[in-house]
């Protein structure tokens, strides 16, 4: 089964809090409560907003505009800011330690870290879909480890010059012609439904 719908408007934070505030509410997804898609869209609204804010108002401002401090993959050794992708991953890992009601990752068809390349068929299909269909999200279902997941894939665009310069200039990048606004990868959100 596949759902491919237009990106919904970002929901207010209160909707997300209501949606993921407790495991019991999440369980409603399987019993006719909150639809997995609404749940995933709400989560993504917060993720995308936080990610854009950190990228634009912290990293891009301090590194690119004001030249105060760099962002570095080895931020502790280099006394620098964590990269936006790292901030996102740290959040995903912290969530994974708190709940198994949903999980999320930042993946790409052109990953700098090859561990962030798509591995499942649905991830590959979803990442290609959001590139081929700008402005649309991708939804589907897949079975992993004996559990069925509602899987949503959202475009992750280059929101600031810092995204473009870092990715294009990185020694391990497989693609060096990104432009501002390009879809560089995708946020994959999974909700177990059975």
């Amino acid at each position: 089964m596949r759902w491919k719908i237009k990106a919904c408007a970002l929901l207010p934070l209160t909707a997300l809090v209501a949606a993921c505030g407790s495991g019991a509410e999440t369980e409603q997804a399987a019993s006719g409560g909150i639809e997995p898609q609404i749940f995933a869209d709400s989560l993504h609204a917060v993720m995308a907003s936080d990610r854009a804010v950190y990228t634009k108002r912290v990293v891009n401002r301090l590194q690119n505009d004001e030249g105060v401090i760099k962002a570095s993959e080895h931020f502790e050794d280099d006394k620098a800011l964590p990269l936006p992708a790292q901030m996102f991953r740290f959040g995903a890992e912290a969530v994974a330690e708190k709940t198994d009601k949903f999980s999320y990752q930042l993946l790409s068809l052109w990953p700098i870290n090859k561990q962030n390349a798509p591995t499942t068929d649905l991830e590959k299909e979803g990442l290609q879909f959001i590139i081929d269909n700008p402005g649309e999200n991708f939804y589907g279902e897949e079975e992993l480890g004996g559990t069925t997941y509602f899987t949503a894939v959202y475009a992750d665009p280059a929101v600031a010059p810092a995204c473009v310069t870092c990715h294009n200039d990185h020694k391990d990048t497989p693609k060096s012609d990104f432009k501002l606004g390009d879809t560089m990868g995708g946020v994959v959100i999974r909700v177990p439904v059975s």
């Binding site: 912290a94 990752q105 992993l144 480890g145």
Partner: peptide, 20 residues
């Protein structure tokens, strides 16, 4: 030690096959 392979890295479902 900034563990290169912390357990939390493997908790997302896409690692199910690897964990097997």
């Amino acid at each position: 030690m900034d563990d290169s392979h912390p357990a939390k890295k493997f908790r997302d479902p896409r690692n199910a096959e690897r964990l097997e």
